[in-house]
Design a protein around this nucleic acid. Structure first.
Lengths: 340, 340
DNA sequence: AATGTTTCTGAAACCGTTTGCGGGAAATCC
DNA sequence: GGATTTCCCGCAAACGGTTTCAGAAACATT
């Protein structure tokens, strides 16, 4: 193979030689620092251009102490929820010329420690911890040497900044929409009772119902898995219960789709007889459902964007925010709640 | 905020002072090089441990010319297909202590060029180009200064190495499975005719049918979108065609699920009357389908693993493979083809 | 005791870039 | 023409490790 040096990488020294100046002058010319005769600057620029010079970011980082890199550590594996988040984060970081180093700890604490060491050894400027966890996760600690932001998963310390989606307000919007489209007898089909998301969504639903002077059909949310099968079963239960209902707020699009299928097959028309709202705006579910689902979009790309922006602020030295920042959800209207 | 230098980063010099040796000796002790008295080595190790020394990878890279980093450039955005691929790649890279720098070009050529420059400036050791593209993508060129592997999307140059899933063999397996479970009148519901995946899957299906002495019901594949709605429509068409059929090979799980729904609602029993096989093993579809889908898993995690392994080989200087490497798919049996 | 051999350690160079400082050359002033 | 000032540019140190090489120290040999 080629020699290391022969690899065709152009250095400031090469540019300097070509332009007949010293390496220091090259640096100043390219970075617009120092006092250079404009003719010299032009000459250096021309040489750099001609040789295809690209400064070695490693060398620069070594000196400046900044790597313009952030680590993204996903606690569970990269999943459906992490994708829009990564995209949003990259938007914010890319604008600041920063790059993302991606690590999947897959829920393994050993692996997480390993990756943290790697990220520190690489001298990343900051870390985003993310991953869908049904509950609060342990903080890295206040003495962690670089800024850390938790996105989508909450740190157990309020000294940290956790950027989270807003389940509760989202649920309120969902129920309000059902009410606004004329549904007064609303049921709630949700996920496993121990999940934070389940609890928050139930709470939001309760708040909105109370505000409208309504109460939940069957009195309680129906709890089950995050699956279509559960949604179908819940639809059966609702129909068999004898209770009248004309709206269902489902804690996920999968559940909502199951409910829609269950109702249709039970002879109940959606949206004419019953309106349905889901959560996630997961397109393959929401759009493929019959009818397509009105749903709460948790705005995960925005969440990623905000998390990255906050991290950048902390890196810049602006005093770091802490506590919990909730990103507003929004409603996406589709046929499942259409009226008239 | 804290001073840059006061940031508590421990250097070899600190360890050296603490252990009463020179920096060079510290390096040798920690890396097991050179000839050191074992007592000295122990003393240095103890000091490093005590001070929490973590070597600065930047400094090491600057000298060694290797960054132990690979760039992962996704042409379209990170999507459903990219996730398992990233996981597989990380497995292979992590074992070699390498990290992934993630860039999304989102189908924008300008952005792609930008990211390539960034990756080069960061002196990554190699690049994986990935992303679902329905057809061949332009090569970065043979004079690109570092190794490149194309994963999941094919380069238009055979000088490059493209690691691809095996649509054709996968389709053969699907059809063979239908034949083995007793179906002899098999239809094929596929995607948009211009997609390479569509064509390859059709070709594989044709091969397997020919080998079994059978021919396609309706003579031609049915082409449509990659959606459930199209699957349902295709099911209608099949039922209305008057042709008898007892097996359907669908080019995706979404289509397959649509077909399953369409048939069930048309009074055709799956798997008793008709067996269905899909492609993707996309769990939310395959498992939520009624009945759950037998499907071809394209083995994308393995694809990512192989792509990363090949890239590592090229980086290590072993002569780089080129052309196309196909990763075998495998069949996942579920109820949609069950017999007896 | 002088020389040769082996074993260990430290000094210094190096990677590629940035930057403060000093100095030479040219321009300005008296 | 000499003293200042101004304007450019080069020198060298620094970042934090690794590696080479020379040489000191310890030991063996004659």
């Amino acid at each position: 193979m080629a020699q290391r040096k022969a690899r065709g990488v152009v250095t400031v020294a090469d540019v300097a030689e070509h332009a007949g100046v010293s390496p220091g002058t090259v640096s100043k010319a390219l970075n617009g620092r120092g006092q250079l005769k404009s003719e010299t600057r032009q000459r250096v620029l021309a040489s750099a251009e001609k040789l295809g010079f690209a400064p070695n970011l490693l060398a620069r980082s070594l000196l400046s102490g900044r790597t313009y890199t952030v680590g993204v550590l996903t606690t569970d594996s990269v999943g459906r929820f992490t994708i829009p988040l990564l995209t949003g984060a990259e938007d914010a970081l890319g604008a600041g010329q920063m790059s993302m180093l991606l690590c999947e700890s897959r829920g393994d604490a050993i692996r997480e420690q390993h990756y943290l060491r790697v990220l520190m050894a690489r001298r990343v400027d900051g870390i985003i911890i993310t991953g869908r966890s049904s509950n609060v996760r342990p903080s890295l600690g206040q003495d962690f040497p670089i800024p850390v932001v938790y996105a989508l998963c909450q740190s157990d310390s309020m000294e940290d900044l956790s950027v989270l989606h807003d389940d509760e307000k989202g649920a309120e919007m969902a129920v309000n929409h059902l009410v606004e489209t004329g549904r007064s007898r609303i049921a709630h089909v949700s996920g496993p009772p121990r999940h934070a998301a389940t609890q928050n969504r139930s709470r939001g639903a309760a708040t909105a119902l109370a505000a409208a002077g309504l109460s939940l059909v069957l009195g309680e949310p129906l709890h089950g898995e995050w699956s279509e099968a559960w949604g179908r079963e819940a639809a059966q239960r609702l129909m068999r219960s004898g209770e009248r209902f004309n709206g269902v707020f489902c804690a996920s699009d999968q559940i909502a789709r199951g409910v829609a299928d269950g109702l249709r097959e039970g002879g109940v028309a959606v949206p004419e007889d019953v309106g349905i709202v889901g959560v996630d705006n997961w397109l393959p579910m929401a759009e493929a459902s019959r009818p397509p689902l009105t749903t709460i979009d948790l705005n995960l790309a925005e969440l990623g964007h905000i998390a990255a922006t906050r991290l950048l602020s902390a890196i810049e030295g602006k005093d770091a925010a802490s506590g919990i920042e909730r990103v507003p959800a929004f409603l996406v209207k589709r046929r499942s709640t259409e009226i008239g």
